[in-house]
Amino acid sequence: MIRKPISRTASILWGVSIWVIFFTAWELAVIFEKVNLLLVPPPEKVLTALYSLIVEGNFLNDIGISILRVIGSFLGACVVAVPLGILMGTFATAESFLNPFVSAWRYLPAPAFIPILLMWLGTGEGPKLALLFIGVVFFLITLIMDYTRQVRIELIETSLTLGASQKRVLWTVIVPAVLPNVVIAMRQMLAVSWTYLVIAEIVASTTGIGAMMMRARRFLHTDEIMAGILVIGILGLLFDLLFRWMHRVFFGYLYNNER
């Protein structure tokens, strides 16, 4: 039925069934040997590979390093992007000055900087963190600027006619009004950060989830590669859930209608 809601149970059942179909198809393809088993291992083999990677290998260490890279570079990007985005969305001068620069960088694909970053920053953590930073910071600035511009002018004007100074309007109206959307922008860009992490670790790293997958490729361990993909997916999902949860906790006043 067009635009008619379905029950929660039905919704969950439908959501689970697509995964059942996916794994059944995978399993059947393996059982009837429709695929090269070396290239496509059965799903359970991916899970056992993941288990042995964690127990016998050093995979937890790789996961930890990857998480730290994402968090470290992302925090750096936020420290730069949140104030700049809010300033650019508030003051026309700040926008005119910075936006041509920020927009230009947005059009340059971050991986294009890998060779030069490697030359400038060596092979340690520097180039990886820099790539992740460059990959998200300009998009984050733009998103936050746009969200700041969307703060309704009536709120600002109300505050001015109540006697607030420019500075007070910025701190007590614009900032609190845009914060919920800043967290949404961060959630969106954190997903992008994971993408660049994998690129950085595949191209130039000996540690991290991406590096583990490249090592596995050398020994034709497709099950381990897939285990890596699985872990990245799960981590992305967990971080997304963390941000959703933070949004609800910090901005509970927006959810009052649902109580």
């Binding site: 009536e154 109300t158 109540l162 927006l254």
Partner: peptide, 16 residues
Amino acid sequence: DRHRGMVFQNYTSFDW
């Protein structure tokens, strides 16, 4: 300034 307080047609409550 504060001497001329304005009430708008659109809601202007500070949600937070």
